[in-house]
C-alpha cells in the first residue's frame, strides 16, 4: 500500500490559476506520496519553476537549492508567490 501524507498548497497572485477548481481561497488541501519533495509537489501543478520566486514551507523560506531535497511531512503547508513586493 502506498503511504500518503496530507499537505496543503497555496498559490498566490498570478499563480492562483494553477490551482484546480476545487481549491478555495488560493488554497488546496490534498495528499501526496510519502517522500515527495517541495519541488515535485509544486511541479505536479504545472507551475513554472522560474515563476516560483518566494516559496515558504510552513512559513519558512525555502531557497531554490533545497526545494528538490526537502521532503514533505504530514500537515506541511507550501505557499508560493511570483516576484512580489510591497511596503
Amino acid at each position: 500500500m502506498i503511504e500518503m501524507v496530507g499537505v496543503t498548497l497555496k498559490l498566490y497572485a498570478s499563480l492562483g490559476g494553477y490551482l484546480p477548481s476545487e481549491a478555495s481561497r488560493n488554497c488546496l488541501e490534498t495528499s501526496v506520496r510519502a517522500g515527495t519533495t517541495v519541488e515535485e509537489f509544486i511541479d505536479a501543478f504545472g507551475v513554472p519553476r522560474e515563476a516560483c520566486h518566494l516559496v515558504l514551507l510552513n512559513g519558512v523560506f525555502q531557497p531554490p537549492s533545497v526545494r528538490s531535497k526537502t521532503v514533505l511531512k504530514e500537515g506541511d503547508a507550501v505557499a508560493v508567490w511570483p516576484p512580489v513586493a510591497g511596503g
Binding site: Y12, A13, N26, L54, A79, A85, G86, G87
Partner: peptide, 8 residues
Amino acid sequence: GTQVLMNV
C-alpha cells in the same frame, strides 16, 4: 500592488 503582502 503592495496589498499582495497580506498573505505573505
